[in-house]
Amino acid sequence: MSHSHVAGRLTAAGLLVTALVAAAPTASAAAPRDAEGAAYGLTVTGPLDVPPVPAVSSRSGDVTKHLLREDHTDLVDASALDVSAAADRARSAVARVAVPSAKLRADAVSAECRGGRGSASLARASLAGRSLDVSPPPNTTVPVDVPGLGRGSLTLNKQQRRADGRLDVTAMELRLPVPGDAATIRIASATCGRAAAPPKAPAPTPVKRDLPVTG
């Protein structure tokens, strides 16, 4: 599996959105003003950048998006993705996941974050023929051998605190040893919690410098 081949297939497939519906935010409940939920279905970083799709975020009421995929790629295949977010919660569910190069499959993968706490669940998930736990503990990591490329890793129920204090929960994070750089596939991710208020911006210090401006 070469870079260019995979890139070409990804580009050709283009992660086509066949159905995309966003609901208008509704009135918020009593969520903190600085709380924000966010979720996405799938993203790829590394030599092959695929932005998070579909992606939602909300500081108020529920926002949802649904993405139906019909096309397949060499790298990753997911047929249906549903994400939702509100100020205090987020959820992402992806169906019929397959990463053929890693022999990773799952009927369904989901991540949920609510009130700053996260969970993930897998349905009929397997790696190289071995079944994966339905409710894996946070940050469960298993090695992944990719024939001809080397060893990568699969982290299940990855939970990571952001710098702003919010929690990221990703049901599956697969690092593949693609030549030249690692490709990371993240499937079903949800973020929630109350972000710490940023500090006051500093007063500027004048810089001794001349710039011709339009007087």
């Binding site: 500027p204 210090t205 004048p206 810089v207 001794k208 410098r209 001349d210 710039l211 007087g215």
Partner: peptide, 13 residues
């Protein structure tokens, strides 16, 4: 937006 705060070599204008 405010991009920079400069103190020119000459204070006039």
């Amino acid at each position: 937006f405010l991009m920079a705060t400069l103190a020119p070599a000459k204070r006039t204008p």
